[in-house]
Amino acid sequence: MESAKNERLIILREFTSGVKALLPILLGVIPFGLTTGIAVTQTHITPQDGFIMSILVYSGAALLVALQLIQANTPVVVTIISALMVNLRFLMYSISLSPYLKHLPQRWRALLAYLLSDQAYAVSISNFENHTVPQRGHWHFLGAALTMWVAWQGSLLIGMVVGISLPKDWSLDFTIPLTFLALAVPNIRDKATGTAALSAGVMTVLLNNMPYKTGTVIAAIVGIGLGVLVERSNSI
């Protein structure tokens, strides 16, 4: 009896500390969710559809890439590949988190995988790494990830509802490239990532006439390749 009560207390404490760890980040997340919601409506998607799509995909960047390419009549396969490329970064988090979740049943892992976001990862990884209570860190992660999910979907929905009624002559379509600019720049951390970003950008312009918007994906692959090369030449 006593130990079951203790267990519940530990779980509750972990969960709450996860929620609390994420709260300060919401100061940046909510306004960005609002502007991303506005950006989504610039692709002629209704808030209802956008909301269902966002729950399905749970990635603002992939959603925006896909919606823009659909609007440009890009072939289905190219659209899916381009949008998934944006999300391949989650593979990085998946690798990093796997040792801390391996004791959990698959349904737990599946739930936490769906809820995985840049922000939840950021606040939970240090908790996993320095944890004193073994095998309870997933409750902290759940608290952080759920808080992020609710805040993101809520602010996106509000942004979409507001977005459809904003005047056309405000040029709000420009929030789309600005959104991606805001996501891209913080990934430039050193010479190697800078080379990757710059070469991918330049290659996109050069490959602009490639059929079916395939230039973007090819340019990104060139950028990744050059980034790896620069990193390797630095480490020798």
């Binding site: 891209a184 970003a197 950028g223």
Partner: peptide, 30 residues
Amino acid sequence: IGLTGKVNLPKVVVRAIRFIPASMLSAVVA
């Protein structure tokens, strides 16, 4: 997360993943 311990990605893949966000997002912006 699902495959823990069953599959190990090659080093070069793990290394390349680090450059995906900078490359892909910059290409999208361009």
